[in-house]
């Protein structure tokens, strides 16, 4: 699967699933856990997209794969610093 298609598939799946869960959570207020699940899925989607892009670039032995790996490390470092 190409870089574009792999990234798009992850982004589309994540955001549609997240929005669907959010809709169910809004329609049934007692299902707060579903609402939260939707928000967490949406929040994780772009990060999953970066992982998918990087994995596809690595598979294609693309020189830009290094940028993806460094970005994942930078995001992880930023989150650790911010949350600690």
């Amino acid at each position: 699967m190409s870089v574009g298609r792999a990234t798009a598939a992850v982004l589309r799946f994540g955001v549609v699933l997240g929005a669907a869960l959010c809709t169910v959570g809004l329609l049934i207020p007692s299902w707060g856990i579903v609402l939260w699940a939707g928000i967490l899925v949406i929040a994780a989607t772009p990060l999953a997209g970066v992982a998918a892009t990087t994995a596809a670039l690595v598979r294609e032995r693309d020189v830009w794969a290094k940028a993806g790996a460094v970005l994942i490390a930078a995001i992880a470092l930023g989150l650790v610093i911010s949350l600690s």
């Binding site: 870089v3 574009g4 298609r5 990234t7 798009a8 598939a9 982004l11 589309r12 994540g14 955001v15 949406i42 989607t45 772009p46 997209g49 970066v50 892009t53 990087t54 670039l57 693309d62 830009w64 940028a67 993806g68 970005l71």
Partner: peptide, 19 residues
């Protein structure tokens, strides 16, 4: 994510530069 999933799939965005 909604917009990017379309643009990336259609080859209209530059994910390498984005990274």
């Amino acid at each position: 994510a909604g917009a990017a999933s379309h643009y990336v799939e259609k080859g209209a965005a530059n994910v390498r530069l984005g990274l």
